[in-house]
Simulated assay, not measured.
Amino acid sequence: MKPASFAHHAPLTLEEALALLARHGEEARVLAGGQSLVPTMAFRMARPAVLVDINRIAALDHVTVEGSVLRIGALARHARFETPAVAGPLGALLARVAHHIAHPPLRLRGTFCGSLAHADPASEWCATALALEARMVLARADGLREVAAEDWFQGVFSTAMAPGEMLREVVLPLPAPAWRGGFAEFARRAGDFALAMAVVGLRLEGGVVRGARIALGGIGGQPVLAREAMALLESQPPSPALLEEAAATAARHCDPQEDLHAPAEYRRELVAVMVKRALRQAVSA
């Protein structure tokens, strides 16, 4: 099929882009990488009357450390993270995640922020943003606002972004030196959508877990935190038995969906395995 007709605008500044979004409201969509939007338009599942193409706005193409945070602009491509974008365990975790996203040609075009704006339940960056306590910086013609990752996801392909807004950048806090990350996912073939994934962040001090984040993706309508497993790890030495118990706890308390790709109980078993692998990865990092 072919997309329905639309008007295409390619502004040179963020201000121009925001003015277009304000003018056209719900009829407008932002085009960055287009790896999700363009196929849905081709199948006419999405029919925006106006595309605001931001690819000429150079100010949006950045991945920079600023004080205690990493700022990721709206045009930062997935491939930008295949080698560490920042020193330390955060850069290593982002690189590990990036290599699991789709296939190399798509990673060269698709964007970090675009993935979060699209909010596919099986998106690696969505689960990662939740685990890392990301903040979404939304821009509109009359100013900026920030939304925490835990408030960003509103359901399948649904976010807290309002008409007239665009996701200008994502802000990730730089972790403490004692922080370690882990990632694991299962897909039937390399590049396929994951049936289950786990993103883990642990702060280890004196041989004890002093902070834990576990995000699950690919199992339901949006990424979720495995809060019971996180609480179980807190203030405990990360022994193999504890990691096993935490993984089982995450699986027991999650609510996986059943669809044509996998039954719910199979996904639950995958959660246990993925969480255990990600935890072991974090502890041994």
Rank of each mutant, 00 (worst) to 15 (best):
L116P: 11
S115T: 10
H103N: 05
F112Y: 15
L108V: 08
V97M: 02
G114D: 01
R107I: 13
C113T: 13
R107W: 13
E124R: 06
C113W: 01
A122G: 12
S123D: 00
E124P: 07
A117G: 15
G114I: 01
A102R: 08
A98N: 03
A127N: 12
P121F: 07
L108Y: 13
W125Y: 15
I101A: 07
I101M: 11
H99D: 10
L108A: 15
P121H: 09
P104Q: 03
L106T: 15
V97R: 01
H99E: 07
P105D: 07
S115D: 14
C113K: 05
H100Q: 13
A98S: 15
H100D: 10
S115A: 15
D120M: 04
F112K: 01
C113V: 02
A102F: 08
P104N: 06
P121W: 09
P104A: 10
W125V: 05
A122V: 12
D120F: 09
A98W: 00
L106Q: 02
H100P: 08
P105G: 13
F112N: 06
A119G: 08
P105M: 00
G114R: 05
H118L: 05
H103S: 00
S123A: 13
P104I: 13
H99W: 15
C113Q: 02
H118Q: 07
I101D: 06
P105N: 02
H99A: 09
R107S: 05
C113G: 02
P104M: 01
A119H: 03
I101N: 05
D120N: 15
F112P: 06
V97W: 00
I101T: 07
V97N: 00
A119W: 12
D120L: 05
L106K: 02
S115W: 00
E124F: 10
R109H: 05
E124T: 09
H118T: 13
G114F: 00
E124Y: 11
L108G: 12
L106M: 15
T111N: 02
A98C: 05
V97G: 07
G110S: 10
G110F: 08
L116F: 00
V97C: 01
A122L: 04
W125S: 03
C113F: 09
P121G: 11
A98R: 10
D120P: 00
A117W: 04
S123N: 09
L108K: 12
C113D: 01
A102H: 01
A127Q: 11
R109C: 02
A119P: 07
P105Y: 09
H103V: 11
L108H: 14
L108N: 15
R109Y: 04
V97S: 03
P121D: 11
A102C: 10
V97F: 05
L106F: 12
L106C: 04
R107L: 14
P104Y: 04
A122C: 13
V97Y: 06
L116C: 03
D120Y: 07
F112Q: 03
S123Y: 06
L116Y: 03
H99Q: 12
C113S: 14
S123G: 15
R109F: 04
H99L: 15
H100M: 01
L108S: 14
A102M: 08
P104L: 12
G114A: 04
L116E: 07
P105L: 10
A98D: 03
C126N: 14
T111H: 05
A102W: 04
P105F: 10
H118V: 00
C126W: 10
S123T: 04
R109T: 08
A117K: 07
A117P: 05
C126A: 15
D120W: 01
R109S: 06
T111R: 08
A117N: 03
P121K: 04
